[in-house]
Simulated assay, not measured.
Amino acid sequence: MPHLENRVVDPSTGRTVERGVIGELHTRGYSVMQGYWNDPDKTAEAVDPDGWMHTGDLASMDEDGYITIEGRIKDMVIRGGENIYPREIEGFLYTHPDIQDVQVIGVPDERYGEELLACIILKPGAAELTAPDIDRFCRGRLAHYKIPKYVEIYREFPMTVSGKIRKGEMREAAAGRLRAGPAAN
């Protein structure tokens, strides 16, 4: 939009990334909020001293300046030092003929920090899918570190009243189940 600036920044360094590289979307201009009402601490988290609002969105910018939202920073999984964007894996898993819906989340892991869990809703009449089934489907088509270690089958995902999937709730519940013992699959 006119009179607005956007940039994509590496969240760990604060430096603008090259075109095509995923980072956090920052924006500033006349239509960007100046801050939260009577909450300077929350404002300082969201808007830096130069007026850039840190959106929390993971995005990339192409050569023409068009921005593609790739996901949310809080959804990014760091497995063994590798940044993994669940939306990419979800997009791939949607190509499986038995998957109706899928959400990929990170769950705690002693060795890698986080591991991937694919939460799957099956198409009606589809056979049950297990972690080895998903591994075979992904092997050779996704980088090895992007293949979900765990698979859980859902009838439906927990949703907010506005229709958003509660990934945080799913992450907490899955972490509790994994602490209690091996994954069901």
Rank of each mutant, 00 (worst) to 15 (best):
A173P: 02
D48S: 06
S60G: 08
D64N: 13
H54M: 13
D39Y: 11
P97G: 05
R155H: 11
L142F: 12
I134E: 07
Y36G: 01
C138M: 07
Q103K: 14
P148I: 02
P2I: 12
D62H: 11
A174M: 14
P49D: 13
G51S: 08
P2Q: 10
L116E: 02
A118M: 03
W37V: 03
I73G: 01
P108L: 05
D39P: 00
G23N: 02
L25F: 12
M170I: 15
D98H: 09
V21Y: 02
V77Y: 10
M76E: 05
H3C: 00
D135K: 14
H26C: 07
L25G: 02
D98F: 09
P132H: 03
T16C: 12
T43Y: 08
Q100P: 01
I165V: 14
P97C: 03
L4E: 12
I134Q: 09
L116R: 05
V21N: 00
K42L: 15
P97D: 14
K146Y: 05
R166I: 01
A175F: 10
T130W: 06
H144A: 11
I69P: 09
M76H: 00
E115I: 00
N185Q: 07
G20A: 02
G35C: 09
H3Y: 14
E156P: 06
D133N: 14
A184W: 03
I69G: 09
H26Y: 14
P40M: 09
V102M: 08
R72F: 05
I22C: 11
P40W: 12
A59H: 12
R171N: 03
R136V: 13
G176H: 13
F157P: 04
E115K: 08
K167S: 08
A175N: 09
R72S: 08
E88L: 07
K149S: 07
Y66I: 06
Y94D: 01
N83D: 08
I121V: 15
G106Y: 07
R179I: 00
D98V: 00
G163C: 03
E172C: 00
E90N: 04
H3A: 05
G91H: 09
L117N: 06
V17Q: 01
R177D: 05
D57G: 11
R72M: 08
L122T: 01
Q103W: 03
R72V: 06
D62R: 10
H54Q: 14
Y85F: 15
R111E: 15
E156R: 15
P86K: 04
G181I: 03
D101K: 13
R136M: 11
R155I: 03
M53T: 00
K164G: 02
P40R: 10
V9L: 14
A183V: 00
G29V: 01
A183N: 13
P182M: 04
K149M: 11
R79H: 08
I121H: 06
A143I: 03
T27G: 05
M159A: 11
P2H: 13
V104Y: 10
M1K: 10
V77I: 15
I73P: 00
R111C: 01
G23L: 03
I121A: 08
V8C: 05
